[in-house]
Simulated assay, not measured.
Amino acid sequence: MFRPVPVPVLPPSTALADLATAGEHHAWLAGTTGVFTSRPSAPLVLSWTGETWREERLPDLPAAASLSGVSATAPDDVWAVGNSAGRPLVLHYDGASWHTVTTPPLAWAKAVTAVGDTDVHIVGTGRDALHYDGARWHLRPALSSARENLQTVTASAPHDVWAGGGGLAGAGPATYEYPVLTHWDGHTWTDVTAPRLERGHVARLAAAAPDDVWLGHVRDTEGMRLHHWNGRDWTAVPGPGDTERLNVHGVAAGWTWGVRAGRRSFETRPAFHRWTGAGWTPVALPDDLARTSASHVGLATTGATTWAYLKTAAGVHVLRHTDP
């Protein structure tokens, strides 16, 4: 079962975006405060101290800003990305404090993945990707068409980075979205013909190893369709079954998350499922959260520890699941 842990009181205007872990005892949650208010939005990072979650002190920024992604390789190497004043906002934590990092321009930074302190990839809502090699940043096209854009990125090694998103085809009323996937081998981005996806876009990628990559593909309002890479082939993975209306929002290595609603209800209650090797099994939540409408649901896992987050009318909740 997921069990709640203490979280600082955050304003109702808080939006949660992404969660990252580094080992069993270190985790970071990124988001934004001041969303849909008259005040400028501001980036937010919470970190796990071993006993509670605390709000991190971030650099002062001259303009409104937001965070959309976070990645960590070690307790002293954490990256968070977002946007401020029309430019990418890149923050780095070195174990002592957070600093802003100057990069080449990138259209609306969406996601980041770090393999080490000398190997970081950032993608945004365009076809380009940023790569930090430990000395400098490089801006390279990762997709072949200007009508394609990236939304998600993951890596298991410096030579094994996946990024995905969608493109537009057709014109006028006949315009439709199609999924795109590309792979970095340490030198070049290459378009991948992969899994047999129809219309929609690749919304989520998660790599645990070169032969263990999970992909979430969205093509309608019914949530994600799931696929798995075993190092040779992509295979479709049946989604979790549910007696109610289940909408899967994300996938991690061996986990999914989303919300469910009754047949005659618009309330969206949080739902987390774990892969058994043959199918998905639901993971229980405390009764009060299992019955509560929730949004901003997410998850990250490492080793025996899995963290989950969600937002309800009562505020932000963070939960921990530990294997026996």
Rank of each mutant, 00 (worst) to 15 (best):
D185M: 02
D242I: 06
L246C: 15
A208Q: 04
S68F: 11
S47T: 11
R199N: 14
T306Q: 09
A206Q: 12
G241M: 04
H99C: 00
T292N: 04
N230T: 13
G82W: 09
G315L: 02
R260H: 09
A169L: 03
P210K: 01
T182G: 10
L205R: 02
L89T: 10
P12V: 12
D212W: 05
G223H: 07
S71A: 14
L150I: 04
T21R: 14
L246M: 12
G134T: 03
V7C: 03
V153T: 01
A146D: 10
R269G: 03
G167I: 03
E24Y: 04
G303Q: 05
V120L: 09
D94V: 09
G216N: 11
S66A: 06
R225L: 10
P240D: 09
T281D: 05
V237F: 10
A300N: 01
A74G: 00
F2L: 15
V153E: 02
D233H: 13
V123Q: 00
H217R: 02
A157R: 08
G23C: 02
W234K: 08
H296A: 14
V78S: 03
T243M: 12
V45A: 01
G31R: 03
V81Y: 13
Y93L: 06
L130R: 07
S97W: 08
A253K: 02
R196V: 14
L143T: 03
L285E: 09
P240H: 01
L143E: 11
V213I: 13
L67A: 14
V153M: 05
D233Y: 10
E177V: 07
W79L: 04
G170H: 11
H249E: 14
W280T: 10
A80C: 09
H201A: 07
G116Q: 06
D288S: 15
G250I: 04
G170L: 05
E56N: 14
A20S: 10
S97R: 14
L143H: 08
W137L: 02
V153G: 01
